[in-house]
Design a protein around this nucleic acid. Structure first.
Length: 239
DNA sequence: TCATTAAATTGTT
DNA sequence: AACAATTTAATGA
């Protein structure tokens, strides 16, 4: 499977550009923000590195500043199933942090990435003190619920083009992943890995989606032109 | 800053 | 899975 890599990546403080990539900071008051920034840590992770592992105690609430992570889980047979990718702007694990449960999944870097972490105690403090923070977390939980329902549907789809379209739409969710914008930085190989198809098939699907005008294929990424169109893509064409 | 080279990504079979 | 073509990143003058 995968190599065991060091788990704790929190190293330095975030610089200005990294702070700008953390969506919930702007919802805080100055005092709250100061405290959060003081406790925030960022670190670089290499492809294959684990950000958190299933079963380990919760230490941080994590977010992606740059790069791409993969959320996966191992079933009892040791098979790894991938739930979703986590692009820039995505924060995850509120549920486990809230309940102080062990992580229920693995988070692994798909490529070289910058990850930010907020210590659980600071998370709790913000939850107790900040209206803006509460609103963000609530929004996040609600939106993620929708994502999981959509993910189950995607799993049942047998048409590769549609699977790719829906998965892409999920990765471009502006609420969960505000750091993405209209260009999603992801290679066809990475997308293939997330969706569970061959790179060739993904390439073919992307060409079809480009022909239908939903996106444009670019080097190292995709420009999303019609997000609703991606979501409603059906076999053959748009709904 | 520019030119050259290496590495990464894509399109195709 | 392999290959060539294309794009980006890295290097050094």
């Amino acid at each position: 499977m995968q190599l065991e890599k060091p788990l704790h990546i929190h190293r330095r403080h975030a610089d200005a550009s990294e702070l700008a990539g953390i969506p919930w900071l702007q919802l805080l008051t100055l005092q709250e923000r100061d405290k959060a920034v003081a406790e925030l840590r960022v670190g670089d992770v290499a492809p294959g590195d684990f950000v958190c592992r299933l079963g380990r105690p919760v230490t941080y609430w994590f977010g992606v500043v740059e790069g791409l992570l993969k959320m996966s889980s191992d079933n009892d047979q040791g098979m790894t199933m991938t739930y979703t990718g986590v692009p820039p702007g995505g924060w995850f694990g509120e549920g486990t942090v809230l309940k102080r449960e062990p992580y229920r999944y693995n988070i692994q870097a798909l490529r070289k990435s910058v990850v930010a972490g907020l210590p659980v105690d600071t998370f709790d403090w913000l939850l107790d003190h900040s209206i803006g923070f509460n609103r963000f977390v609530m929004n996040q939980l609600n939106e993620r619920l929708g994502q999981f329902i959509a993910a189950r549907e995607i799993d049942r789809l047998n048409n590769p083009d549609v699977r790719v379209a829906r998965s892409l739409a999920a990765l471009c969710n502006p609420v969960l992943y505000p750091g993405v914008g209209d260009i999603l930085r992801i290679t066809q190989q990475e997308l293939a890995y997330l969706v569970g198809l061959s790179r060739q098939r993904v390439n073919e699907a992307l060409s079809a989606l480009q022909a239908q005008g939903s996106l444009r294929v670019e080097y190292g990424g995709l420009r999303v032109l019609d997000l609703p169109g991606l979501r409603s893509t059906v076999v053959g064409s748009k709904k």
